[in-house]
Write a protein that binds this DNA or RNA. Structure first.
Lengths: 166, 166
DNA sequence: TAATATGTTTAGAATATTCTAAACGATACA
DNA sequence: TGTATCGTTTAGAATATTCTAAACATATTA
């Protein structure tokens, strides 16, 4: 391939790899996606291994991560025994979806625990006899309620984002 | 302190610590904030060291991270030589602000590199003589433009978020 | 069936991150 | 001035993550 085109490809792959890393996403995940995103046609695992100079195992696990995100999909090419992959070009949808799912999972777990903690506090409230303890319990109730409200706002955001990606 | 209240505090600290970790934020950062968020009054570094059972160095660097985020602030208590800290209770503002700033920094860098890459491609376009190369160059131009558009949308989001936190 | 091609799993090497304990520097106070 | 009290920095230990190379499982072709 033309060396100028190769330079453009390389530059793009490095850029997206760094962006990935800075978002705490495995660099190879970003680079695999960048590679497929630019590629005029589908690529095999071996193609990607050659381009990125990584091991096959590494390519294998990270391409499956991208499949899970619906960021790439397998395509079958007749006469070929290898799997080929192509990028889903709708980057915005992929990003919003990942963000939404990540947020949902994490906040759901957190909300459950906060609610449980509120329960602990309410069940014990009759045990707080002196003024000092009653005061602290009241503060705790207030603070937990604030956090709970944020959980609810976040779940609303998740719903809004769901609407954006159908 | 009442053991029930202690259990509530502990549970909350663990919950927020786990949430932090799951968001690729240092666990101690989350736990320090959780501790101060619940606390009826300001706490010293030593108080936090005792509660979380961590080293002073660890507490020191992570509390400064929280200061940088405007998530906690120093308060001076007369007659005390130690620094005391208290939480900014406006969690939503802190979160939106961190998210916004993180996004802005990362996307700005990325956008710059994408634009540079577009420049590389355009400058070379007269060098692509055969049909094949011209075709690939055109695809690259299209794909880079898509990414560029997302960068712009992201910068818009940053502006919207800026509006939300004044 | 044997030989080859392909993707996955795994053990542990390489690297990066987090954490502590101790050294350090600065400030307050005797 | 010397001593105690703080917070910060730092060297390297502990831990977690990422990556490779090789073993493995499965399917395909000869």
């Amino acid at each position: 391939m033309n060396s100028k085109l190769k330079a453009v490809e390389e530059e793009f792959i490095v850029t997206i790899g760094q962006l990935s890393e800075s978002l705490s996403i495995n660099r190879i995940v970003g680079q695999l996606y960048a590679l497929l995103f630019l590629s005029p046609g589908p690529l095999s695992l071996d193609d990607m291994v050659d381009k990125l100079k990584i091991s096959k195992g590494n390519a294998s696990v990270n391409i499956r991560e991208l499949e899970r995100w619906n960021a790439v999909k397998k395509v079958w090419i007749k006469g070929e025994r290898k799997n080929f992959y192509q990028a889903n070009l709708d980057v915005l949808k992929i990003v919003i979806n990942c963000f939404k799912n990540g947020l949902h999972q994490r906040m759901q777990k957190t909300t459950e625990r906060i609610v449980k903690t509120q329960g602990m506090l309410n069940k014990s409230s009759n045990l707080f006899i002196n003024k000092e303890e009653k005061n602290i319990a009241e503060i705790y109730q207030d603070r937990l309620k604030r956090i709970k409200e944020i959980s609810e706002k976040t779940e609303n955001l998740v719903k809004v984002l769901s609407g954006l990606v159908e």
